[in-house]
Each structure stands twice: as C-alpha cells, then as structure tokens.
Simulated scan of single mutants.
Amino acid sequence: MAHVLIVDDSPTERHVLQGMLERNGFKVSLATNGEEGVAQAKAIKPDLILMDVVMPGLNGFQATRELSRTPDTASIPVIIVTTKDQETDRIWGMRQGARDYLTKPVQESQLMTTIRSLIGA
C-alpha cells in the first residue's frame, strides 16, 4: 500500500484529500504546515507528498525546495496542490523540485492519474 503525506494548513482540504486517497487504497499521513511536513517526510519517508503552497511559516515552495535538495528526501515525488493557478506559480513550483502541479479544487480522477504516473501505484 503506497503511503502519501498530505501537507496542508486547511483541515477541510486535508479531509477531502485524505478521503480521496483512502478510497483509492492509499495509506495517509497528515501535516499542518511546511515545517511539520518536512519533518514528517524525513521521519516516515512516504512514497509521495501532496504539498499546499499558502501556509504560515515555511510555505509549500520553500518546503518543496528543502525536500528536493535534501539527500534523504530528494527521491520522494512532490505534487503541489494549491489555489495558486498562475503559470508563473506553476513554473516556480516545478523549479523548486515539484514533480507536478495541480490547482484546487482537484478532481479525484485527475489526482489519482497524476499520483499513479509518478509512483506506479
């Protein structure tokens, strides 16, 4: 069973994404901000991370950059899932090390297709 870490400061978003993932057979862990997300990623080594951008403290771009540049976590694919829908945001997110970029509200079928393309689950 593939393990996905959701990093999002919104309880509603965490709940919605967790429901989608669990319905599709994924194990889910949750983090409420960038710092917690980075710490959990290092501790549990999930198969994939869903990363929000707009969070207090360490934002999703900064957390993604840190994860992608740390040897222990660099191989974990990060999908940015955010309301920031500008092309410049998408380009910046990918430059920080994200493997894909989805805008909210994300459709379950799109999310599952994206995850499976990255981890083959």
Rank of each mutant, 00 (worst) to 15 (best):
H3T: 09
L5S: 10
L5T: 02
S10R: 08
P11S: 11
E13L: 02
E13K: 03
Q18F: 06
M20Q: 08
M20N: 01
M20T: 00
R23Q: 13
F26W: 09
K27L: 07
K27W: 01
V28S: 02
L30Y: 08
L30C: 11
E35Q: 15
E35P: 00
G37C: 10
V38L: 08
A39C: 09
A39F: 08
A39P: 03
A39I: 07
A41R: 02
A41K: 00
I44D: 12
P46E: 01
L48Y: 04
L50P: 02
V54P: 04
M55W: 00
P56M: 09
P56L: 06
N59V: 03
F61R: 02
F61H: 08
Q62K: 07
Q62W: 07
A63Y: 02
R65G: 11
E66I: 15
L67F: 07
S68L: 01
R69N: 14
P71W: 06
A74I: 14
P77G: 07
P77M: 08
V78W: 00
I79F: 08
V81N: 02
V81P: 00
T82F: 04
T83N: 12
D85P: 04
Q86P: 07
E87I: 11
E87D: 10
I91Y: 06
I91D: 11
M94A: 06
R95V: 00
Q96I: 03
G97A: 14
A98Y: 01
D100L: 14
Y101P: 00
T103A: 09
T103V: 15
P105S: 11
V106Y: 09
